[in-house]
């Protein structure tokens, strides 16, 4: 009973907030609806017993990716008239994509209702006594180790690429040397003098 209520609540919220992501006029609101959708998707993952994936979804997408996304969108100065002008221009291409996606969903539903796909084996891929973090770990770090490390390397290349592309040498910028700053003592920087009246000090 509670599971059913929770499922319909999460499912409804995912779909509703996804729809609002598209229709929201303000881009910041759109990102916030997207975050709500991520969050409820994580709820659905918990319901099917994939709590590790659910937490990763929240940490990675909600906690890091969406924050940066929101950051960028907040900084942008968006011209709503220009956005609406673009809508007419790209409507045809958008429609093609929409039809394609709808067809894929229908094919998927068709295949699912036709049966013959071994769903039962996929429903409970881990033994009951093994939490799914450990089950994932024992596959990722043994059988799929090289694939996993390959994925890590791809991400590393992407990261280095991003740094190389955005890094620029600033000519004439005076970089600070933190260790030198920290090593500087008051007696190096200040001097106590007792100038007499009517006479300045020589520096």
């Amino acid at each position: 009973m509670i599971q059913a209520i929770a499922f319909y609540l999460f499912a409804f919220m995912v779909i509703a907030s996804a729809a609002l992501t598209i229709t929201a006029r303000n881009p910041v609101h759109a990102v916030l609806w997207l975050i709500l959708a991520f969050f409820n998707a994580a709820g659905l993952m918990v319901l099917v017993g994939a709590e590790f994936i659910a937490m990763l979804l929240v940490i990675v997408y909600v906690g890091a990716v969406a924050v940066l996304f929101l950051f960028v969108v907040m900084m942008l100065n968006i011209d709503f008239a220009e956005l609406r002008a673009g809508f007419a221009k790209y409507a045809a291409i958008g429609a093609v994509f929409a039809v394609g996606l709808a067809a894929e969903i229908m094919v998927a539903f068709g295949a699912w209702s036709a049966g013959k796909i071994e769903l039962a084996r996929r429903a409970a891929p881990t033994p009951d006594t093994v939490p799914n973090i450990e089950a994932l770990g024992m596959l990722l770090y043994t059988r799929y180790l090289f694939v996993f490390e390959g994925a890590g390397l791809v991400l590393l290349v992407a990261m280095i690429g991003a740094i190389v592309l955005t890094h620029r040498e600033r000519k004439g910028a005076r970089a600070q040397n933190v260790s030198r700053q920290n090593a500087r003592r008051p007696q190096d920087a200040t001097r106590n003098t007792q100038p007499t009246v009517g006479k300045g000090i020589e520096l």
Partner: peptide
């Protein structure tokens, strides 16, 4: 007493920033 307790802590604490960003914006 969930088996992803620490991840839950990380996930929830990473949400904390939203209150501040939204307030600022």
């Amino acid at each position: 007493n969930i088996n992803v307790g620490l991840l839950y802590v990380l996930a929830a604490s990473s949400l904390g920033v939203y209150g501040i960003i939204l307030a600022g914006w």
